[in-house]
Design a protein around this nucleic acid. Structure first.
Lengths: 252, 252
DNA sequence: TCGAATTTGTGCGTATGTATC
DNA sequence: GGATACATACGCACAAATTCG
């Protein structure tokens, strides 16, 4: 006897086929699990497994208490990460949004004297417990949250200057590179380390995405031209909402 | 009554605690699930859920027919992606490995006249079905596979020249930038689009990683200084084995 | 306004497959 | 080849969310 496909995969293919044939359009609600189960001659649980698979692939979308829906292929926000992006006076995120013809806003909450946890201290080259300026961001494209970020700057670098608060004072929202330039610190390069992982429950709720869906967690650190870390951030980019693009010049 | 932690999370914390207290060292085999279940007063299935959670987080490692093991915190390979990496005569991957003091090898299989599928054609700016040179790579660090890649070059660009075959002829393994230079094509910049996803069964088997563990799928395209795409590749970087680092110079 | 019905989501158990020793 | 242990598939019960009368 040749090995045959397990039932839940057969149902998954069946659902995918019907969607491809436009039996259900994006945004439509599927029949209930019991209904599909009876129709296809399988248990309710098999349908659930099939739907869970398609949900994890972004084909379907489950809404508790309401139903299972065909996911809308929403246009993703293109997040460009390159040296060119840091030029000009505004914020990098604002530049991304302007390039897409979208409105870019953000909400932020700053704590001016936050003791550095061990990992952040290591990234900033300071001692654990040293004071930092910690800012939590929520970035919005056309009013919808699309990206999260938590930024850390050593307090002894900016304390007492006009740019202590990233989102306050005359240079609010100008971006790290521009703000550091105001106090005579030249940012020489940035290092970004993108790691794939699944969204936490809190992140999923803030971003309005399915639970445990995939995100890229970028650890970014800006260095002064003398090699000192001047800012580090944890940036959460949900795969369902954003595509990340690195542009790398090739010098020879 | 306040809501209490579900049993499987309690067991997960219990296992994590015991590992942290060195009751089991990295590489050790845990007791069987029935044994742990009896010891902790829960069903075997609860233990399984707890272990699955820790496996997905990379704390444990399951081996069918053998047991569940404490994962070894293996040193990850640092993959640097920057403009500087393309300088010098050798291959970018070889440079990464030399920087780590590891031996960098790779195996490849080239098909010289492969019709381009629709997606690749779009990325290379050619018509679907146009011929390409398609090369499948498996990159090894100290003999262990750590990265996969499938590369596509338009045949009409290199056909009839000495560098048709990426891994053959006098410039074998020199990297795209160097090989293109040999035929008078200057590579101006690269674009990389990293997407998080789960490894397929085939990828997991090739890389020797846990099934459905996380990888970064990078779509990379090299462009000539005239803006024409000269190569595109799909690169699979497993999170368990490699860390990706982008170095971005800040020009002002 | 409220509560009952519906639907998805979660936790957990059991049976079977399959790899390893 | 048998015993053991993990992996997978499937089923049931209940909780949570939503909808609607």
């Amino acid at each position: 006897m040749p090995e045959q496909q397990p039932p839940y995969l057969r149902i998954a293919d069946e659902l995918r086929r019907r969607i491809a044939e436009h039996e259900w359009e994006p945004g439509d609600r599927l029949p209930s699990r019991t209904q599909i189960g009876q129709e296809c001659g399988v248990g309710e649980n098999v349908v659930r497994r099939a739907q869970e698979l398609l949900i994890s692939q972004g084909v379907l979308e489950g809404r508790a208490g309401s139903g299972t829906y065909v996911a809308k292929p929403c246009q993703r926000v293109r997040v460009v990460r390159s040296s060119a992006r840091e030029q000009g006076g505004g914020s990098p995120f604002g530049a991304d949004m302007r390039a897409l013809g979208k409105q870019g806003d953000w909400e932020s909450r700053t704590e001016a004297k936050f003791p550095a946890p061990a990992e952040i201290a290591a990234r900033l080259g300071i001692a654990e417990g040293d004071l930092c300026v910690r800012t939590v961001y929520e970035f919005l494209a056309d009013g919808r949250p699309v990206q999260l970020s938590t930024s850390w700057e050593p307090y002894d670098l900016t304390g007492g200057t006009l740019v202590v608060l990233p989102e306050g004072g005359p240079h609010a929202g100008a971006g790290v590179v521009n703000r550091m330039a105001q106090i005579g610190v030249t940012v020489g390069h940035a290092v970004e380390q993108p790691e794939p992982r699944q969204a936490t429950a809190e992140e999923a709720s803030l971003l309005g995405i399915q639970k445990a869906s995939l995100v890229t967690h970028i650890q970014r650190t800006y260095y002064s031209d003398e090699g000192r870390p001047v800012e580090t951030a944890d940036i959460i980019v949900p795969a369902a909402l954003c595509e990340i693009v690195y542009e790398i010049p090739i010098n020879r």
